[in-house]
Design a protein around this nucleic acid. Structure first.
Length: 888
DNA sequence: GCGATCACG
DNA sequence: ACGTACGTGATCGCT
């Protein structure tokens, strides 16, 4: 498109302000220091910025309605009657919207007896006559009647950073009408929101049908005699006058007697001084910062927050019935909040700060009540950590509203820090030091003994939580991620906290027994390796091992790494048979991995007091929305090889007569792919519960019956399915199943021919990523892909594969999260003793008393199956036994 | 502190 | 012709 010189932007002020108000209703605390509501002004400003940036207009005018009575009410007294009154919280903001416009150098205008629509209609025609490109911005679809080749009507959407652009072609597509017929449609069908009726029993659908045949209201009545006898015909005849009146009401004036002209709409320069004092008046800190590039609080010093340090005698100073939300920050000295010592806490209650080092005070009133009362909403950083910390004190935090860590993660998981200071800084609040800056790191790390110093840091953390709440909630809402937060991540945090606290019991005797067995075998194999090598060396050192294999024994070099020879399994496997040392090294590797990571590593993290391990799930780390597990990682306990699988014998129920129960989603990622791609063949395979890999095999090898699928063919097809999920490349596939690139490419091409829906999804998702800069899951979890337009092929290709994979992996992660929340709820409702212990991406592990086994199996299948309604069924497979090993 | 390796989905 | 499958965490040796 060639760039035109002059663009005239016409904004329907009332309608956009109305949309803005409802876009951010009941979100955070959107009032300034005088109690003035500011949500509509805030969003109006955001929308304005978006459209100014998008269209770079030379001329701008924002039109407002002048009052209740207009020429339309004179023609038809019920026009817009019965409309709910504009809420006071909105009308009080309209003068401030105008103030904002004035500071922006934008003209606003209203005209007695006319609506904003008519001002816009008139100016748009004047603009067209002068050769302007005209853009109308409104929340009201009626204005689409103004679209022409020169005039675009942009209707604001639910989220406030998007608009739907109506051109004549888009109107055609949406309604099947040309723009001027919109008024004929309104005439026949009427308009509920403007309170005019149209013809009885004629709605949009019927109106469109009539107009396609007869072109206009006039056309309909010219041909009324040709119409077959029907109820509709009777209604049309009866309501003829109404139809013409309504068409007239719907018609936007293009000749209103304006007292200003195009030359008055020229955009003036933005007045920074005015804008600054305006933002200050409304307490728009983030906008102030964007304006000046500095923080409005920058002049404040850290110790300027006044805080009351509490002891027993001071507790009565704390307001027992907070009026607003309470910000709470609990500091724990170290990552592992299950065991690390407490440092102190800070509360911000109704503008006042309270704190203490002695966390035992939290058990005293009124603090206990504030923390545990479900009616008092808490704002925190990391609700899971906070919940576990309070649980150690015997307190149960029940009501969290805002979790700064979780919300930050949902908004942008590429900048994923878990440091409050760093995250606050990313969102424009840079008055909190990072923990590393404040406490120091490594050997220099130290908790200040000076109260003033310590509580300056902690109170600023609470300040950041309180301060960022409304801004970040607004961004969530704009991304349509409010539900993802309210219904998924926030409740999940508490479910995870309970699982972590429950822990899983470890049979340390069994581990120690394995430890001595492995020790013996390792010594044996080690000796054989040294004999074969003719010298002693450190087998664990890739460098020393490389020297022995490739220099001393002169085995062929298969692959190199940056630092030398590669000795990875894939390489050693190719060297098998050339020297007996290779097999021994493979055995040594396998056993020593089990020994160091799983036997010794696990024994180190078992808690003495309960013989359990209490992992921590990282809820805000992965780019796709999966969880991860640390300290210990219980999501990578060996299972593929029998030898390692035995480690699972050491995971046992916490009570005798209980069972370990495992429930896993079968093929969840491929089912998700079948759902989001809409591919018919793939959906059909799942709907008839076929073996999906065999099904793929039949398709890509052109087989007629499942009998022809040999194990090897099925294995290859399975690899193709995996490849598809990962964003396939021929080389990757060829490496994985040991075929040539050419063959791999053929498999892929055939696959896409047989599953065209999948092919289309892959193409569409990549172009979506290019256009929007991100991809999302079925629950609106986002992943930004800045590299999608990178000029380097490799970098770009990687981003493209990520675009294909993330919605699949991420949606699967979303689904099991929903299942976990529902499961937790059901177990509580039914007062069952069964406990959910672990999540391993597509499976859940429980411990179940024998007497609940039967009921539980039905329950878990049911809950997991119905976590989400996809176009294909979900399938859950269950197993149980007296150890995790036996739950297979 | 980083790369190589290998455990999992 | 590019260089190569998606997402993680723990351990080791070596700088």
């Amino acid at each position: 498109m060639t760039k035109q010189e002059n663009t005239l932007l016409l904004v329907d002020g009332n309608s956009v302000a109305f949309r803005a108000f409802f876009a951010l209703q009941n979100v955070g605390s959107f009032t300034n220091h005088d109690g003035l509501h500011t949500n509509a002004v805030y969003v109006f400003k955001k929308i304005l910025d978006n459209i100014l940036k998008k269209y770079s207009p030379t001329n701008v005018l924002v039109a407002f309605d002048a009052g209740k009575t207009t020429f339309r009410t004179k023609k038809y007294s019920d026009y817009k009657a019965g409309r709910a009154k504009t809420p006071g919280e909105l009308s009080e903001q309209l003068p401030y919207v105008r103030k904002l416009l004035a500071a922006y150098g934008i003209k606003d205008y209203e005209l007695a007896d006319y609506e904003a629509d008519d001002i816009i209609g008139t100016l748009s025609r004047q603009g067209e006559a002068k050769g302007y490109r005209v853009v109308v911005v409104t929340g009201d679809r009626d204005l689409t009647q103004l679209t022409t080749d020169q005039t675009t009507v942009s209707v604001t959407q639910k989220g406030f950073s998007e608009v739907e652009e109506y051109t004549p072609a888009h109107v055609q597509e949406k309604y099947g009408l040309v723009p001027r017929q919109i008024i004929d449609m309104k005439g026949l069908a009427g308009d509920n929101s403007d309170n005019y009726p149209g013809v009885t029993k004629v709605g949009e659908k019927t109106a469109i049908k009539l107009l396609k045949k007869y072109d206009s209201v006039e056309g309909v009545y010219e041909h009324i005699d040709d119409m077959k006898q029907s109820k509709m015909k009777e209604h049309l005849i009866e309501d003829k006058d109404t139809a013409f009146l309504c068409k007239d009401l719907a018609t936007i004036k293009t000749d209103a007697p304006l007292t200003l002209g195009l030359e008055d709409t020229k955009r003036q320069e933005l007045n920074e001084t005015k804008l600054r004092s305006f933002y200050e008046e409304l307490d728009f800190k983030s906008f102030l910062k964007e304006l000046t590039g500095e923080d409005p609080d920058a002049t404040k010093k850290f110790n300027e927050i006044e805080i009351t340090l509490l002891d027993e005698s001071q507790l009565k100073k704390v307001p027992a019935a907070p009026k607003g939300p309470v910000a709470f920050y609990l500091e724990i000295d170290g990552k592992n909040y299950h065991s690390a010592p407490f440092i102190g806490f800070v509360l911000k209650i109704d503008g006042q700060y309270f704190g203490a080092r002695d966390v035992q005070l939290l058990k005293e009133e009124p603090l206990k009540q504030i923390l545990t009362d479900p009616k008092i909403k808490m704002d925190v950083f990391d609700s899971k950590r906070t919940f576990v910390g309070l649980n150690r004190l015997g307190l149960e935090m029940t009501a969290v509203d805002f979790d700064l860590l979780l919300v930050s993660y949902l908004l942008n998981n590429t900048e994923n820090s878990d440091d409050l200071g760093e995250l606050a800084g990313l969102h424009g609040f840079d008055q909190v030091k990072t923990d590393e800056q404040f406490y120091g790191k490594g050997a220099k790390r130290e908790i200040p003994s000076d109260d003033k110093k310590l509580f300056a840091h902690l109170s600023h953390k609470a300040a950041a939580i309180a301060d960022l709440k409304s801004q970040l909630f607004a961004e969530l809402k704009d991304n349509q991620q409010q539900d993802l937060y309210d219904e998924m991540e926030l409740p999940l945090a508490l479910v995870l906290a309970k699982m972590e606290i429950a822990g899983i019991t470890v049979d340390t005797d069994r581990l120690e027994q394995m430890q001595s067995e492995f020790k013996e075998r390792l010594a044996q194999v080690k000796q054989e390796i040294f004999n074969e090598a003719g010298e002693e060396f450190n087998i664990n050192s890739p460098k020393q091992l490389g020297h022995i294999l490739f220099e001393k024994l002169e085995l062929p070099v298969i692959k190199k790494t940056k630092t030398g020879y590669s000795t990875a399994v894939s390489v050693l496997e190719k060297l098998r048979g050339m020297s007996p040392i290779v097999d021994n090294i493979l055995v040594y590797r396998q056993i020593s991995k089990l020994q160091s990571t799983y036997i010794e590593g696990l024994l180190k993290v078992v808690f003495d007091k309960d013989q359990k391990v209490h992992t921590r799930y990282t809820q805000t780390l992965t780019a796709t929305g999966r969880l991860s597990s640390v300290d210990p990682n219980l999501q990578n306990i060996p299972v593929r090889l029998e030898e390692g699988r035995k480690i699972r014998q050491a995971f046992v129920p916490s009570h005798p007569g209980w069972q370990i129960f495992s429930a896993d989603y079968s093929q969840i990622e491929l089912r998700v792919l079948a759902h989001i791609s809409g591919d018919e063949h793939m959906q059909e395979a799942f709907k008839s519960d076929r073996d999906i890999h065999a099904n793929t095999a039949m398709q890509i090898f052109g087989l007629d019956s499942e009998d022809e699928v040999t194990p090897n063919i099925r294995r290859q097809a399975k690899a193709v399915n995996f490849g598809i999920v990962y964003g396939i490349s021929d080389y990757g596939l060829s490496q994985n199943i040991g075929i040539t690139r050419k063959q791999a490419k053929k498999f892929i091409d055939t696959y896409f021919e047989k599953f065209p829906g999948v092919k289309k999804y892959m193409d569409d998702i990549v172009s979506h990523a290019r256009e929007e800069g991100f991809v999302e899951t079925i629950f609106h979890r986002r992943r930004y892909l800045p590299d999608i337009k990178h000029k380097n092929y490799n970098v770009r290709s990687f981003a493209e594969r990520t675009a294909m994979n993330s919605p699949i992996q991420g949606s699967a992660a979303d689904i099991i999260k929903v299942a976990m929340i529902n499961m937790d709820k059901k177990l509580a409702e039914k007062k069952m003793k069964t406990k959910m212990l672990l999540q391993v991406h597509d499976e859940l592990i429980f411990e179940v008393p024998n007497e609940e086994l039967k009921e539980f199996e039905d329950l878990v299948k049911n809950v997991m199956d119905s976590a989400v309604d996809l176009n294909v069924p979900l399938k859950v497979e269950c197993a149980h036994g007296k150890t995790w090993f036996n739950a297979k």
